[in-house]
Structures are given as C-alpha cells and as structure tokens.
C-alpha cells in the first residue's frame, strides 16, 4: 500500500531529524558568532524561533485537518481517519513545541529585556496558541472518543484559525503604542543566518517525524479497536 509506505517513513525521518538537530546545534554554537549587544544568551533565539514557527505551522495544519475531517467525516472514509490522526498528532506536537517556546522565551527575556515575562504581543500570542492546543487535547481526552467527540475537537481546531487572527490583532493593539520587537534586524551575519535556518529546519524535521510517528500510532490504535470489535462480534455468533 502506497499510503502505508509514506506513513512507515517514521524511523527514517527520525534519523534525518536527529542529524539535522546535531548540525543545527553545531551551527548555533560553533559557526554563528556571538551577538554584540545581547551576547551569548542570544543563542537561545535560534531554537526558540525554530520551535515557535513550527508551533504555528502545527496549529495551522491541525485546523486544516479539522476542516477536512468535518467535510469527509460523514462518509466515514479512510481520509477522515487519516486527518483525524493527523489532528491529534499535530496538536500533541504543537503542545510540545509550545512548551519549549514558553520555557526558552522567558529564559532569553530575562537577559534581553530584564524580566522573565512581559505581555509582549508575540509572547501573548504564543501563550494563547498553547492554551488552544491544550483545550483541543482536553476535548480529545474527555469529550468522548466517538465521532461526536472527534467532531467537537475538529470544530475547535477550525474555529481556532479565525480566533487566532483576532487574538493576534487584539494583543498587538492591547499594549497601546508598544513597539514591535524587531527580530530579523541582526540576522545579516552569514553565520547567524546559517544557524537560524538550520535550527528552523531541524525543528521542522523533528516535528514532522514526531507527527508521522504519532499519527501512525493513532491509526493503528483505531485499526486495533476495529479488529477487537469484529473478533468479539465473530465469537458472539
């Protein structure tokens, strides 16, 4: 089966991801020069932003998966099973990435801005995405694992996309005339650029590997449940 082959790519992806992470770590610590104003602590930035970008992508993917699920769900097709599994996987990996963002961010802010936490728009937005992901997982865990429960979670993922736009807008204006922190300004040094893109790519590969492995596990779980059910039904007759 073609699809099974793609899904079975988990271990290869994991190896690729590990290699990319090692290379990115090398680039961050040994190639990129030390930033002049923030100093060594700026090295947190590379993996921090890499995680943040991939968290956003995971959230978007979760929303798209939810939409496809709601559209195809009625047919009970294989597509709806696959996107449902992708929904769980992206949400879980998204929460993991969000946790990384929210832990490394304050550590960097401590040195860069002199405070652990500030209600800066981007930080606030990350926190809200993290909370939405957590709500999604709570729905998956407690709202029932039938079609209905899956549908509610998918609905949250879908409605989360426009909500995110409003949250983004609101937190941007919320702080009043708060200046935007310009991240990209200092990235003109070649070594820094390399480290930045290497770590973004590394985190992408890590996320994709984890998502693929988790989605496959979820699909197998569903298949197992079905097999047990049909076995019970077979014994009953």
């Amino acid at each position: 089966m073609n699809k099974a082959n793609i899904i079975g790519a988990g271990p290869i992806l994991a190896i690729l991801a590990t290699a990319a992470v090692l290379y990115a770590l090398y680039a961050v610590f040994f190639v990129a020069p030390i930033e002049a104003t923030m100093g060594f602590v700026q090295k947190i930035f590379y993996f921090h932003v890499g995680s943040a970008i991939n968290m956003m992508l995971a959230f978007a993917l979760c929303g798209v998966a939810g939409l496809v699920f709601l559209v195809t769900e009625r047919a009970g097709s294989r597509v709806s099973r696959v996107v449902d599994a992708i929904g769980v996987a992206t949400a879980e990996v998204g929460v993991t990435l969000g946790a990384i963002v929210l832990v490394t961010g304050p550590l960097w802010a401590r040195k860069a801005w002199g405070t652990w936490w500030t209600w800066e728009p981007r930080l606030t937005l990350s926190l809200m995405i993290f909370l939405l992901f957590l709500a999604y997982l709570a729905l998956r865990a407690f709202a029932g694992s039938d079609r209905f429960g899956r549908g509610v979670a998918a609905g949250l993922a879908v409605i989360g996309l426009p909500a995110l736009y409003f949250i983004h807008f609101a937190v941007q204006r919320w702080g009043g005339a708060h200046p935007q922190v310009v991240y990209k300004g200092g990235l003109n040094v070649p070594g820094m650029k390399l480290a930045f893109f290497a770590s973004v790519l590394a985190m992408s590969l890590v996320s994709v590997a984890l998502i693929v492995i988790r989605a496959r596990q979820e699909l197998n779980n569903r298949r197992l449940d079905d097999l047990f059910l049909s076995l019970d039904a077979g014994e009953g007759t």
Partner: peptide
C-alpha cells in the same frame, strides 16, 4: 554577559 546558565537551562 552572565547568560551562560540561561542558555544551558534553555537547551
């Protein structure tokens, strides 16, 4: 910079 521990902690 005294940020070494912060970097180590973050990673």
């Amino acid at each position: 910079v005294q940020g070494d521990t912060l970097v180590v902690a973050a990673y």
